[in-house]
Structures are given as structure tokens and as C-alpha cells.
Amino acid sequence: MEYLLETDNITKIYGKITAVDHVNLHLEKGEIYGLIGRNGAGKTTLLKMLAGLAKPTEGSYSIFGEPEKQTAKLRDRIGVLIEGPGLYPNMTAYENMKIKSLILGMNDDNFIKELLADVGLERNIDKLKVKQYSLGMKQRLGIAMTLIGHPDLLLLDEPINGLDPQGIVEIRELIARLSKERNITILVSSHILEELSKIATRYGILHNGQLIDEFTHGELLRRCRERIEIRPSDATKAVTVIEGMGITEYKVLDKSVIQIFERLEDSGEIVLELAKNNIKTLSIAVKNEALEDYYLSITGGAGKKE
């Protein structure tokens, strides 16, 4: 499969610190890819490398099917918002937009007004200084800046960071709308899985610089949904028994734990059936995980220091 963006063991080392460690990330056209990780997990460094702001120490990446060294002419198809919107505070939204449009050789001013209207910033665009904007307005302006040049790919680093709940909803809806209406592929990072889960179609979990998991939205829902989690004495035999009971929605983890996603009220019957087949049930529980709990479980818990 050809990906719109793909990394091949991309690594970034600062002195003795490995910020990004052999990451292999895959992004398909039209996706909203949620890159999740704690503060310091390496999200920003990874996005900076993809945005051409930092050079990988090892490994490489390709964008639009072209290897890193041949992406120079394709760079204007990528919109970047890294570590908050970089804006001139003493200039207006219009002037900030104009600066970026000039570098891309775009002299028509109408599209600036259109883009600002698109992100809900049509008022006082040439009067109000950016320093008078709220954080949410600055984030929206930052996203409008990324849209100059009609990009096919957006790299958004923590766009909801520091926003109030209303601001988070606005940015989330804006990202979803951009993906849908403009068919833009979006790689968005955050440390809040709950928020990303409302818009992303695919996820990557970055932890201590390593991409420890990549999964689709459907898979995330499946992983977090209510289930019977059973630890039998013989998992292979238990699977045969479970299938014999007509259960098809199940998953075997670590060759010892079976997660069953249907007939949740029949846990007693399952234990009985296993016992009939001389399989001991070492433990059984009905579980469901909140997204954040799931995220913490795969990254080693909230208390663990990086």
C-alpha cells in the first residue's frame, strides 16, 4: 500500500537523549491520524522532522510518495502548526496571513479573507492586533495560516492545548470539517486521547520516543468496549470451547487471556462450559475501559516517570 506519509525508522537524538526512537508511522490519504503521547513523548520532535524543521539523526521518511530529499517542491502542500501558532503579536490577522502568502507567491488577497472566514475570524481582521486575541482565536488563526497554499497535508501539534472546553470543541469541529470538506489529510498530536477519539480515524501511540501501537478508530472502540476477560488454564483449548458455544467476537491476548465481546451476561455459562471440558478458569471479570484508562494501560500508567 502506498501511504501519503510514511516514516522508516526515523530517529532523533539530542546529545544523550533519544527524543524519537526508530518510529515507523503510516498515514493514508484522507485520514485524520491522531498521534497520542504524554508531554515529552517525542510528538513535537517527530512532527518537526516531518515538517522539515529538524533533520532526522537516523532513518528517513517519505511524503506524497517522494523520499525526504526530493520533497522540496512538495513542501508548499504541507501546512504546519507546531508548538502553538507562531504569530507576530503586533500585527493583525490579515498581516500575519499576508506574510505567509507572499512567501508562496500568492498575491490575491481575497483568499486570505475567505480562509479567515472559514475559521470564524472574519471580524476586524485588519484592525485587531493578534496580541488582543484569545488563545482559541490564535489557534484558529494558526490553523488558517496552515491552509494558505491549499495544502493536502496538515501537521498540527497539540492544537487544543490550553483551550477551554468551548475552544476545544471549536477546534475539533474545525479539524473534522477541513478533513471532510477539503479532503485534507491531517496528522494531529495530543496528549488527550479522549479528544482525538472524537475526530481521528487512525491512531499512533508514542511513548518515550517509540511508536508502541498503531490502530484504527474501530479497533480503539473494540479495545475499549465492555467485555469478558477470562484467563483459562489452556487458552488454545478454551478457544475451541468458546467457538463451540457460537461466540465469534473474541480476541486472545498474550496467548493466555481471552477477551469476549458478546454474550456478556453469560459469563457463568462460559465458565461452566470450560469446566465441562476440563479447563480451569483462573480468573474472570467483566471489564470496560475509558479511553484514558486504556491509554494509560498501554503507556505504563500515570505514575510512571519517563
Partner: peptide, 14 residues
Amino acid sequence: KCGFDKNLIGITNH
């Protein structure tokens, strides 16, 4: 200083 370079520098490899 204001971080505007992050909007621009990546546009070109040079």
C-alpha cells in the same frame, strides 16, 4: 522570537 519561522522554514529544503 515569535515562532513565525516554524510556519516558513520548512517550506523549502534550502
